[in-house]
Amino acid sequence: MTNSTQRVAWLDFAKGVGICLVVVYHTSEGTLNSFADVSGNITLVANYFRAWLMPMFFMVSGMLVRRSILQDDNAKLGNKLLDWIYLYLVWSVIIYLTRLLSNSFTNTHMQANEILHILWDPVPTIWFIYALLLSFAITIWVRHQSAPWVVGIALAVNMLNSLYYGWFDDSIFQRLAWIYVFYAVGFFYADSIRELLFASKESRLWILIFILMSPIVAFVKPYIPVYLLVFLSMVTVLAFLKFCISITALLPRWKMTRLMVYLGGISVFIYLTHFPFPAATRMLLLKLDIYSHGLTMLCAVLFAVITGHVASKLAQYRPVKFLFKRP
């Protein structure tokens, strides 16, 4: 595997593993909202993913858009912004209608007027697309500014948002204040991050390090001062990316590696279409008198992956294409 190919593979692998874990996280959040977590295990899982999962996606996204943004092709950048806006609006309506119609048999409690608030308060799960859109727009605006200044301001905003949580009243700006620093680090320091990640050749050791540090992150997160969580997130993200590099380097032909690389390539489709499955699988298993968090997570991931795969294929055809691509 060449270095160039390897870089594409590990980024796709990271997105593939990440999108499966997003489904696991949303399933665990739904479980916590519906049942008492007597053992505390589901809370640990949620704490672990809150620490680094979304920061990882935003850092990787920042790295991936660096070249296109720095080309200074304003027409192309404007079209990309319109693509994000279109995707956000279309799927906001889809998720809103689905949740509104399922109010009678789920605990979503979607209000009829929530669709009117999507400019500042996205409907559940779709906030990720809106935050990516805003991060992309901000980065276009500041792309030629000093990297330390931009990242420093983003870091300060993140820490202040953690200290004075509630300033933005749970709006998209609250999430953006938390997450943009990771996008900025990925964009402005993409080359440095790659150099750091590829500096060490001890692949097996890094796999072990990430596996061993994962339960530690889950246990210590609640005890770290909120304004320092950004640093825990950064370290965990970098360890995870090193883990992905190591797996793709050591096991490039392993079926699971290939699967995760493929899923990384269709991660947007999985993200957009996965929203019904955390609740649907939990309800289905309960109807069958099966109460298993692990099985619920596994089934949710399986359904989300299959649906995302089907959506990626259907998106090539005109009757469905408008759901995923601006006409």
Rank of each mutant, 00 (worst) to 15 (best):
L64G: 07
R67A: 06
L70C: 06
N79G: 07
K80M: 15
W84L: 11
I85V: 10
L87S: 05
S92I: 01
V93Y: 12
V93M: 10
I94N: 05
I95E: 03
L97A: 15
R99E: 14
F105I: 08
N107R: 09
H109R: 12
M110D: 09
N113F: 11
E114I: 01
L116R: 13
P122V: 01
T125Y: 14
I126P: 05
W127C: 01
L133F: 13
L134C: 09
L134M: 13
S135H: 02
A137F: 13
A137C: 09
I138G: 10
H144Y: 15
Q145A: 15
P148T: 03
P148N: 03
W149K: 10
V150Q: 11
I153Q: 07
A156F: 07
A156Q: 02
N158Q: 04
S162P: 04
S162V: 02
Y164S: 00
Y164N: 00
F168N: 09
F168D: 06
D170W: 12
S171N: 07
W178C: 00
I179F: 04
Y180K: 03
V181T: 14
A184N: 03
F187H: 13
F187T: 12
F188R: 11
A190I: 05
E195W: 15
F198A: 08
K201L: 05
E202S: 05
E202G: 01
R204F: 01
R204V: 00
R204Q: 02
L205I: 03
